[in-house]
Design a protein around this nucleic acid. Structure first.
Lengths: 224, 224
DNA sequence: GACATTGGTCACATTTTGTGACTAATTCAA
DNA sequence: TTGAATTAGTCACAAAATGTGACCAATGTC
């Protein structure tokens, strides 16, 4: 995010950066210098010739020091000149980071629980909603959940990520059965003991080679 | 689509307009004045203060006289000044029309079978691919298939739409069972005889009131 | 050692889906 | 007029996927 863009540009890139910490979904917001304590999403403008995905990743890097293991287009908005740089159009991206990522580099950047957001303008808020919707929506088609975890993780941790994103409890046996059937995780020979309870085996994400042909139509997934 | 934009604007809206005619998926393309006979998607630039969804619908109306019953954001592209109006960013929408829609108003606009596309620049082509992907991808969450049909349709027609979009045959009994279970169609007391064979009952789309809570995770829908 | 806690698996009931075969209503040709 | 061809619509059963409770295993705590 820059205070003085080196080139005036009529569009802006906003990025909703999400992570899970302490079992809660959080988003990285930026405090404005505005007296009314409004918060906005990290943003910037594309440099000349810069692809917008590159801009989005640059915004993430500027905010937390590393690029996001998952990032995707979430929406586009005509803004009516309300954006900080008077952008007429803003393009929103959604990104996720592992919960183990380093803290923000700028004190104006603060992680906020998605369940307890601070004051934002309705417009900013709706951009955030779009990013959040994109994350939840792509959950079953993109390996988002795995990107919210470090390379090695336990199956309980993975299940917890799904539970947080879906907002509902899952049954352990069902969850693991689907996981193994899809051959989407690979067991390592490492185990982790986390204080009390039996130690858990560590797994890594195994990108699927070939997708099985999907089954019939699911009309019950239709909205409106 | 305008030849001389009344306001220079650095971004453009492209719309992939799809329909199904004669059992084939088709897209509406515009012939450029270029000697090399390249084809592009219908496009325009937003007017001052105009929301981009409005621009997209205006492009559809200008092309075929009616607005699209379904239209949705499909992608955003940094273009590196290759767009006809030197746009740096183009926002792509995907739209569908019933196969019964009137023919294009401009002779430069021609329906092309998606399975047999004419010469396009790689960039334009990838925008079209993005629009097509958006249609296929949203198929199970948006009532797209119903928007490709007139208000009253037979179940065989609906099945055919799904088969064309999915690129595979479906089993009649399964298809209808899912359809009725989701209460997504409503029988009318009209019937239509189409030459030979038993007449078919006409149905209308019944927007679902309440979604059933989805079942477990489908890891086999994950890509890459 | 008993117990609480977390990980991991199993078996079985229930639900959903795949599939072929069947009946119904119409047109067309002999 | 009859029967083959064609398209619509339904049924029943097999196969597969999912929901669910119970169980055993390994660790820390008291």
């Amino acid at each position: 995010m820059r205070d003085r863009p080196f080139r005036r540009s009529p569009f802006a890139i906003d990025v909703g950066i999400f992570t899970i910490r302490n079992g809660q979904l959080e988003v990285l917001l930026c405090k404005t210098s505005d007296a009314r304590e409004k918060w906005i999403l990290p943003w910037d403008q594309p440099r000349p010739q810069e692809p917008i995905e590159t801009t989005a990743q640059r915004i993430v890097r500027d905010a937390v020091g590393t690029s996001a293991p998952w990032i995707e287009l979430a929406g586009a908005f005509g803004e009516g000149n309300r954006h900080p740089a008077d952008a007429e159009i803003s393009v929103a991206f959604a990104a996720v980071l592992p919960g183990t990522s380093p803290p923000p580099k700028d004190p104006q950047l603060v992680w906020h629980k998605v369940a307890d957001l601070p004051a934002m303008t309705p417009k900013k808020r709706s951009v955030l909603e779009a990013a959040l919707t994109a994350v939840r929506f792509r959950l079953e088609h993109s390996p988002i959940a795995f990107r919210l975890l470090p390379p090695l993780f336990t199956l309980s941790e993975l299940q917890k990520v799904y539970e947080v994103l879906l907002g509902k409890r899952l049954h352990k046996a069902s969850f693991r059965r689907s996981l193994h059937a899809a051959e989407i995780v690979e067991a390592t020979d490492e185990w982790r003991g986390e204080g009390r309870g039996r130690p858990a085996q560590l797994f890594r994400f195994a990108p699927p080679k070939k997708r099985r042909a999907g089954r019939g139509i699911r009309f019950d997934a239709l909205i409106a």
